[in-house]
Design a protein around this nucleic acid. Structure first.
Lengths: 275, 275
DNA sequence: CGCCACATTGCGCTTTTCTGCGGTTTTACT
DNA sequence: AGTAAAACCGCAGAAAAGCGCAATGTGGCG
């Protein structure tokens, strides 16, 4: 099939290019298709297979592609192969996206908000892309990679020790010295906290230091929204850092059971979920 | 001779122009077509290829186009909207890896070091994978994604306002309140600072706030190593935050010219580069 | 007006880079 | 094991880049 459409190269033919430009196009072609063959690329760029080989060799040493027999594959495609057992992870990812979208609905343009760590928080950041003039404080080191730079006016990060696996910083919830030596206590209209577990009495997480910080962030917000996917219900993790009543909203991806609905109602917590 | 060749001007021939006007037209041609060749431009503007080459060289150092073998390509697009990998980035990537490897050679196991922002710093982080028991302080939000968690004992991040595009935090170089309200001044054995430009007298960068922080981080280190790739030599950016003498080492990917070697020697700076 | 400093440009030369080709070796697949 | 494709190697021609130098043009200054 490759020979069929390569004979009369039509839309895929990009013709002759400058060497450096061709290499950039090669990287694109590889990352886009996941895998490519030398012969196919030679035809596409109208150069000899040797030239393609040399290009791919250099791109391989630069780490941009991975050289194989007959062609090259994308470097991140190695992480891509998703076996069937990742299904659970995918389901959770979908849940996090839903939660992120719902949580973004609580945020108004011009708001001042706090966001803590975790992948759910990153999903929220993606759904804040269409907001404007936000002021955001966080301990999530990766938030700046997910946020649309046009959506916020100020983004602050709390300093402290880094938990490398979670990509969060652990430290006091204040911003010292920014205004010239004066320690500012920080408050915000809305705190969006992703937690590790919930049972009928309290929110919990597995790390004590992180728990303290989450508690501080909850106390710094006039309104508190807790984000938690349905798989984390009925979990009582090591550090129970806040009673249900500290939250104003609980955002989740599935309607909790009546037991939890009653508990939330009794604590004055509003449940936000799809449907 | 001007009258002679004006006879056979094609319709695409724009003829002779003043240097400045030609350069502006060059930028237009490049950004419009995505890529251009030297020969093509030489004919179009009726000048020698050498002149076009010189023009493109200057436009490249100004960042308006990207110089390649045989011509130039547009900086922003690469003629593709979602080309995540910038061509310039590719070229410099190899240089940064070299610098990162050399810089890692300055770090001993058990060291306390400071690292600032920039992709060069991330390259350094990758090359610290085989070190152990490091204590690291940084304002680089992405460092935790590149560091091997087994290589360090403590990782601290300075809080502050986030520059979203650079993924760094800008704030005071100290860690407040971690030990219970006491502001600790931070010192380290080695500060590894990636800078934006260097000339024969000083190091510079384009952002004032970041410059202040880089200066503070340099002052906090017993030993200071500046990381800078060869493309950033002869650049005098807006904020010149430190004289050459503040550095103990300059780490780069190519042996600098004699002018710089003399300047570094006079300032007591040791140059580290391949070969 | 003459002179000099400076930028721009083109030319000849060498050096580097890129590319394709022929021949040999290695790899993958039946 | 055999076969075809792919990779490796060395080489050479072409194109481009770099370098020094000279010619030209421009503007300032005594």
């Amino acid at each position: 099939m490759t020979s069929a459409d390569s004979v009369h190269r039509t839309r895929t033919d990009v013709g002759r290019r400058l060497p450096a430009g061709r290499k950039a196009a090669l990287v694109d072609a590889v990352t886009e298709a996941g895998q490519v063959t030398v012969a196919e690329l030679a035809e596409k760029f109208d150069v000899s297979p040797d030239t393609i080989r040399r290009d791919l060799d250099r791109l391989d040493t630069d780490g941009l592609v991975i050289r194989t027999h007959g062609g090259a594959v994308s470097p991140q495609s190695g992480a891509k192969p998703e076996t069937a057992l990742d299904l659970r992870k995918q389901v959770q990812m979908a849940a996090k996206e839903i939660i992120g979208e719902l949580a973004a609905g609580l945020v108004d343009d011009g708001d001042t908000i706090m966001i803590n760590g975790g992948t759910t928080a990153l999903a929220l950041a993606r759904h804040l892309a269409d907001h404007h003039s936000l002021t955001i404080a966080t301990n999530n080191l990766l938030l700046s990679t997910e946020l649309n730079p046009d959506s916020f006016r100020n983004l602050y990060i709390f300093g402290g020790t880094v938990r490398p696996h979670d990509h969060v910083s652990i430290g006091p919830v204040h911003l010292g010295g920014l205004a010239g030596g004066v320690d500012l206590d920080v408050r915000c209209r809305l705190s969006l906290i992703a937690v590790g577990g919930v049972n009928t009495t309290s929110f919990s997480t597995s790390n004590v230091a992180e728990a303290t910080m989450m508690r501080d962030m909850m106390e710094a917000g006039d309104t508190v929204a807790v984000m938690i996917d349905s798989s984390k219900f009925n979990r009582k993790l090591f550090a129970q850092f806040a009673p249900l009543a500290m939250a104003d909203y609980v955002i989740t991806d599935q309607m909790p059971g009546t037991e939890y609905m009653n508990a939330f109602a009794a604590a004055g917590v509003e449940v936000i979920c799809p449907d």
